[in-house]
Nucleic acid binder design. Structure first.
Lengths: 208, 208, 208, 208
DNA sequence: TATGAATGAGCCTTCATTCAT
DNA sequence: TATGAATGAAGGCTCATTCAT
């Protein structure tokens, strides 16, 4: 039993890894079950032993990295450092995640809460998104010394647009993620800084 | 001949129109050559008379709407109104374009200048992108009363990220574009305002 | 054009023939599109040019032979010969058809009138079945010198059971149809004769 | 050992039961080994411990119900009641069996004696069929007061065709077996009666 | 005896593309 | 220019069956 368990776990893990890499790189439709199988070193039918179908595989695949992202963000927002610093770190983490796990990121963004008939993963991913958004809002509010409310919601949205815009701008770049990030690090930090300065200024003016 | 020419032009135009509508709505992979042909009122083999393959078709397809966008933006930046107003209008135009022509927008963003082996359209699209970016930079510089340079480049990038982030956030939304835009108009405007205020503040502080 | 038409017609015909033979022999599920294609001398994808899917192919396939059967029966019932003779001929025709076109016969028997959502072939096959039954009833009534009514319906049902029983008894036989029919011809004729004698006797007794 | 034996017997029995129910209802191809295993409460690989393959399983499966049918028929033919009554009862039993155990019935009919290479079940089923046929012939001969011979063979065949025709006519009906049988009981009895009357009349005329 | 793991063969279907006219 | 005919490659998926434990 324990041997089989191990073997089975190993296979499943290999499938997940293979699928993960492939999906990250190639997009849902482009990846075929046979490619995954080949990369995982098993038959394509074996995949169906562990995952109901392609869609399920992708969704199961997406949860762990997304959770990891959330946990990292949690750690960051719990830090002692200044809100500005935390915001910078959070942004960096978010951007790097988005660039690294392209398709998981896409799912993260696109998963609708709606499909209520489904088992659950959609909902969980949706929750995750909301939670991350809430963390972001929290730090932004701290940074601006305001409490959560309409203003913080507005600012968080705008902040999110920018973050998301960065990710999607470079998502299909041929440059390596490291190269890219180093090249544009200052730009990204300037973006964060500008946004916060802008929010502050807007507050000083009295928001709409 | 001239009659045939006209007829031929017409056919090509119909193909482009049909493909354009289909691609805008349904995504590259989902659209089939036969669907396009049907909508264009010709045989699917006819398409190959005018376009090497599906990819080429899509690329050639993207140019006109993109040019249209560019022209609209040109008109806006040429206006007499205040830089802020022009920036707002430009942003609105850009966002609405991105939401309306989903796939053209994707191409607009993703087309690399690199693929030198190809005929040309990549390059032209790339030029278009650069031109639009330049217009954006121009207005931003005007608004901030600075001249083009590193600072304006930085700010334009950040501004662009946000714009692009807005488009991609809502690109797969089920809401109608009108509904969506009306619902979030104020948010978008606040984003633009915040950014500019932030840039200004950053300038006042002295940019890094 | 006319050449293409011819070619196309030929291909379609070949597909129909191949599919017909295969379906007759092997049953719906056992026959694969690739087998049909191979036998028809074309690619399996070509089949989809002419038939929406496998099911449609089979149904389209079934109608013509069934119509042929009906027409043959019509001719027989319109003959001048004695009712008994016509009944014998009709039975022979029916049995031979059932043995020759196994799966068409199955469809003939099993097609339900119910599926109303479908386009039509089900309904038509159903009509055909009813029409054939009606012809049978007509001759039986003539033979027994009764008019159509409950009695003739009852007798026709019983007659039909026997006919159908003969077909299904030998449907999967390995014997060639000719051999089989010659070997059992007298038995089948005796069956028809016995039934009629029995009906007559029952009438004489008063049918309950 | 004896415990294991018992356990093993139990498993086999459970498989047979599960498979029996499934095959009766759903047809050979539609039933999967995994479905059987699930219903039997064992792994699908276990089935292969007891049965060489799916086909063998189905054949071994068919014997018990067929034997049951035979025993029931034996009881009926051994009764004191009139031949006519016994024939009616026998017919009813036969028809109900055929409608209830669809696929076993199919095997009962289709199993060829030929396949000599196989282990044996074919032969046994064939014997069973012959025995049942013999019983039928016996009662028919009694009813007609003739001795077994060419005539009785002929009549039995015809009788059998009708019985078999009834079963196969309604084999795929959606009606419940009870409903159906009650609705058509009189028709079936009329069929039996007519046949016998016909045989008698034919005898009176002098056969062939 | 029993089973979880794994697989190869095969199925229907779709699609971009080419060929011959 | 235009098209109907045809196809190869590929995809997702299912199933009976075997292997190793």
């Amino acid at each position: 039993m324990s041997v089989n368990e191990r073997k089975s776990d190993k296979t499943k893990k290999q499938i997940i890894e293979a699928a993960g890499e492939l999906f990250s790189t190639k997009g849902f439709d482009s990846v075929t079950m046979r490619q995954i199988a080949k990369k995982a070193g098993c038959s394509h039918t074996t995949i169906y032993l562990y995952f109901k179908d392609k869609e399920t595989l992708l969704h199961q695949l997406s949860k762990p990295p997304l959770e990891k992202l959330y946990n990292e963000i949690l750690k960051i927002t719990a830090k002692d450092s200044s809100p500005q610093e935390r915001l910078n770190l959070l942004s960096q983490t978010y951007i790097l995640f988005g660039l690294t796990y392209k398709n998981m990121y896409r799912i993260f963004i696109n998963t609708e809460a709606s499909r209520v008939d489904e088992e659950e993963p959609e909902l969980e991913i949706n929750k995750l998104r909301l939670s991350i958004f809430a963390e972001l809002e929290k730090v932004i509010a701290q940074r601006l010394s305001i409490s959560k409310g309409e203003e913080s919601l507005l600012f968080t949205r705008v902040f999110f647009y920018t973050l998301h815009g960065i990710v999607t701008t470079y998502q299909d770049s041929n440059e390596s993620i490291d190269e890219l990030y180093n090249r544009l690090k200052l730009t990204f930090e300037a973006a964060v800084e500008s946004l916060l300065l802008g929010f502050q200024a807007k507050l000083d003016l009295g928001v709409g």
